[in-house]
Nucleic acid binder design. Structure first.
Lengths: 203, 203
DNA sequence: GTCTATAGCCAGATAGAC
DNA sequence: GTCTATCTGGCTATAGAC
């Protein structure tokens, strides 16, 4: 039964590929495993995406396009710093708890292939620091927050929100908590992280 | 010319393997490439370490044994919280700037193989949170710092120190800074991060 | 201990029938 | 569009000479 190309097959493949690539990485993933998970034939993967490399890039770009809007939220909307920090932290942690492999996947592959970043940087709605920088400089000048560069503050915000997912296995081991307790810790961070940051910068 | 086994060959291999594994991961690394970098024959790798798996484990354990004492510094020495945070931040960032691939390597492989962590957890001087926890609870009770759980504070400290290395490609791209400027930013973090944390927790 | 040659396997990719 | 069978190359690992 010949189905048209804009059928759900392509989506099924992408979903299966996403799961496998995200848990095993580009090199560790096997086309056969992706095919099995998508309940199709290995030859079909090549029919739809030509090569492992191209399938991987499709998965990566899709993943990145999920994450980018999250970053733009803190960089480019119009609320005050304090509001931004609160809403970003809450939204980001909520979002990633539903897609826990996402940040690690992105970061991992960005570390492997520096070429990728140049491509996406030009292409899509890649997050830029400019507006955020302007805002921070204004607030520092007005002495509503302690002196800090936009870059440093940005790094701090991202670190506090992203690392608990990327470094989960290490943290769990050192703190000696099981998955269930760790989930509660992350849940609490939705509010705690923003308090922490705001305390750190407010006068 | 028959050299004894405790010669430098074994070290050469380990050094080469470390570089390749750290930049390409277990699956992406090639025994041939490691052999080339160590200026020896591929067969020698197997002679010394039997298999890729065992060579990898040797590299991983060595890497982890470099990182573990760093963590213990903040968890188990006897200074005050404020001193600890200052010295840990300074020392950790200084240390990792010399081994920038280390944290990413550790984290990556811990995410891949959860079995590893159980092994090292029992084995070596694996960092434990107990003493740090006691100290934080005491300080909170004495109201010298704002209320915060030891786990959350630990996560915050680790995040702020580790993520800037793990997420470097992403941060560089968003902040639009080159390697040289990023190095300066990291340099500044040796002091800025501890100020940030201390401001966040002190009353 | 060190090397060359090769076994043996496995994965990505394609040919070609339906 | 979908499948089976197969090609082709590359990789780990070992055999065996020196």
């Amino acid at each position: 039964m010949a189905k048209s190309r804009d059928n759900k097959t392509e989506e099924q493949i992408l979903k299966a590929a996403q799961e496998i690539f995200q848990s095993k990485g580009m090199d560790g993933a096997r086309m056969q495993e992706i095919a099995d998970k998508a309940s199709i034939n290995k030859a079909m993967l090549h029919y739809y995406y030509r090569s492992k490399q191209l399938l991987f890039e499709a998965v990566f770009k899709k993943a990145f396009s999920l994450l980018a809007p999250q970053l733009n939220a803190i960089l480019n909307d119009d609320s005050t710093i304090e509001e931004k920090i609160r809403s970003f932290t809450h939204n980001y942690i909520t979002f990633i708890m539903k897609h826990p492999y996402l940040p690690n996947f992105i970061i991992q592959e960005l570390n492997r292939k520096s070429q990728f970043i140049e491509e996406i940087k030009n292409n899509t709605f890649f997050p830029k620091l400019d507006k955020f920088k302007e805002q921070i400089e204004k607030e520092v000048k007005a002495r509503t927050i302690r002196p800090i560069s936009a870059e440093q503050l940005f790094i701090n915000i991202i670190s506090l929100n992203v690392f608990p997912f990327v470094g989960a296995p290490l943290i769990k081991a050192v703190a000696n908590v099981d998955n269930e307790s760790y989930k509660e810790i992350l849940e609490a961070r939705k509010k705690e992280v923003s308090e922490f940051i705001i305390n750190a910068i407010k006068k």
